[in-house]
Write a protein that binds this DNA or RNA. Sequence first.
DNA 1: GAGTGGTCTAGACCACTGT
DNA 2: CAGTGGTCTAGACCACTCC
Lengths: 268, 268
Amino acid sequence: MAAKYERIANELREKIRSRELGPGDQLPGEQQLVADYRVSLPVVRQALDVLESEGLVDRIHGRGTYVRAPRQRVRRTPERYQWEKDRVLLSEAQRGRTGATEKDTGLTMSDLEFSARYDTVHADEDLAATFKLPVGAKLLRRRYSTKSRQERAPISAIVSYLPYDQAAENPALLEESNEPWPGGTQHQLYTIGIELECIIDHITTRPPGPEEVEELDLRPGVSVFCLRKVSVSTTGAIVEVSDVVLPGDRTEFVYTTTLAPWKKEGQR
Amino acid sequence: MAAKYERIANELREKIRSRELGPGDQLPGEQQLVADYRVSLPVVRQALDVLESEGLVDRIHGRGTYVRAPRQRVRRTPERYQWEKDRVLLSEAQRGRTGATEKDTGLTMSDLEFSARYDTVHADEDLAATFKLPVGAKLLRRRYSTKSRQERAPISAIVSYLPYDQAAENPALLEESNEPWPGGTQHQLYTIGIELECIIDHITTRPPGPEEVEELDLRPGVSVFCLRKVSVSTTGAIVEVSDVVLPGDRTEFVYTTTLAPWKKEGQR
DNA sequence: GAGTGGTCTAGACCACTGT
DNA sequence: CAGTGGTCTAGACCACTCC
């Protein structure tokens, strides 16, 4: 009852799972499969479409179809937030020496190409709800892009929002030409008297749009992580919201929850 | 230079993004598009394949192609871990009354269909590294499935691993017939003298296999979240590892990181 | 039954990668 | 150059949904 393309996909998938075809191995050519299974070319291609969308194979034009190897994931932990906060109180020279991206990647400042674009937008329903501001509230939008100079590997694309009136308290914060700001956003907030109490991470996943496939160099079938970072000040106000899009096959989030001890004895 | 199917996909995508076609709206039929764009049927279908894999449209056999509406996401926060820990010290009657799944969903015990299967496996490289045990170490594997009795909606599929020798200290823990255990895993660990110090969540995403598409009722293009939960006892030992697979379009993780205050004054 | 999407054939021609 | 995947045509027939 199963469709022919499903049968072919199933058999090839089984060979991959059983390691008969290991990572990096080449699959039979399309014409070979046409002959093996006595079907037409589009059917074979449809079967390979399935495997590609499951992330099992890579198709390389002019070379062949290969079993995809799992990718090395970059770990992202919330420890960076405390690290960033502690850095705010250092001298400007110390703050300028290195940023959070360098800490993550181990690259130095000179390896990185950094760009920032500022503009103002009005809060849509979603942002308004997150900020607990009315729809249409004026926001400063800051878009950051960091790339490695060597490889054309894009490291991250970040969109950050600040309530406009809050940012305007220090006019220097409205100028994109001041980027990269030594000490980052937490230091920028510090210049207008804001200390962060906590940061709330919201993690979702979704398929990428075509721009993101281009930008993040994603293979077919790979989803992206969306991290929405909500920063809360010690006064309880929501002072920044930022959205980070990360490649789903190269990222891992790690969060540790410490539990309060039982009051009474509980050991045997 | 763009392929015909890409042009069609781009135009339709633009209509969806601009809200000219809103969630739930029907797209033109395939034959209609064939006529509109003067291309063959497979080209139109290829364009729709693209939009489907981007999660923008649903294709319903015999009815039509519709703009997909975003799904309501279920929030998952680590507060449940503390809640589970506190519950361990309650009486058996109190523990039996409700479990973590009910807390999440608001459903009652009688609405839920619970099943558990136990067996033993040997640690592969991945599990061995997580447990910090040698490869091949004996593990008790416990697979849980919880479904709502009304809808055929599967709520979660969980695989949990315990070091076998550790679990064997209380023979009752080796019997799947004792499930559902009042008070859950943390109470089970309590019976062998283990108190949890912290739980470490590792979050990744990947495309689903065909079984998961079936099991979780996933639409094409939707990835799954994989949550690996590592439980550490107060003695520093890794006492449980569990893997949870969640639908990527219906799940959101929320983690709050509280930051230590600056020692000196930092307000203006 | 009318309308819709799902599968399949048999072939053509183009574009990219390697030697 | 040979070998490989990428795009496309012009049809045929089946399967599902709704009236």
